[in-house]
Nucleic acid binder design. Structure first.
Lengths: 113, 113
DNA sequence: GACTCCGCTATTATTTCCGTAGCATAAATT
DNA sequence: AATTTATGCTACGGAAATAATAGCGGAGTC
């Protein structure tokens, strides 16, 4: 699967707008989750696998490659994976989602049990 | 495919934490994009289809059903689809992504042309 | 030199998604 | 009243992405 990059046409968009490349990248399975799980620091690929409910290594490695190519995470020898400054910035950008998820849960419970 | 709801175990998570349900929901193809395209108001399902680069109606309808069940979008007769107040809140939560995408593009260009 | 953990890959089955065509309904047009 | 147009939505077959399991080569450790 092609690695999404800004200013390049991506899966589902012919415009090449950066936001589209980003939505393609983040819309792939486990991509958001991986970034989320790296919020507190380094994780080896196996720790990451555990953290993501034993995701299959095939997809995990795909996502890791893509996220690395996108410059959002980095791999350091004997440490594992971590967010780059850019990746950290991205995480901060959707950190409000966590708070939202809680409100969402509250509202969904109120409505439908 | 099961519709993700908070406090319910979802695809890829046995914990039922709301954030996991949300990441599952938003991690599906076109989910983020649909919310994004609804940022300026009502769109009929066909307008939405066009806006999403002619996404196949099969998947679009799946995402629309899930997003409706999650209470993030609503369908009104003769108007089409629009974000609910909750959905609007979600959009606002990841609106910073747009700004991030632009910085990401700038940085990627600087690094690799 | 056997252990352990690392990042990563091969293979096969399953799930999800795509592309095309088309349905039933309802409003507008002629 | 008949036709046209647009709505939300579905069926079906093929393509693509993901899953599950097993295992590789390398690097440190004891």
């Amino acid at each position: 699967m092609v690695e999404p990059r800004p200013r390049r046409t991506v899966r589902g968009s012919r415009t090449g707008r950066p936001i589209m490349a980003l939505l393609d990248l983040l819309g792939r399975r486990w991509a958001l989750r991986v970034i989320w799980e790296l919020r507190d620091g380094w994780l080896t690929s196996r720790q990451l696998r555990e953290a993501c409910d034993d995701v299959s290594p095939t997809v995990l490695q795909s996502r890791l490659s893509e996220l690395r190519a996108a410059g959002l995470i980095a791999l350091e020898h004997r440490h594992g994976y971590a967010l780059t400054p850019l990746g950290r910035e991205l995480l901060d950008s959707f950190l409000p989602l966590h708070g939202f998820a809680e409100r969402w849960a509250a509202e969904a419970l109120a409505e439908q049990g």
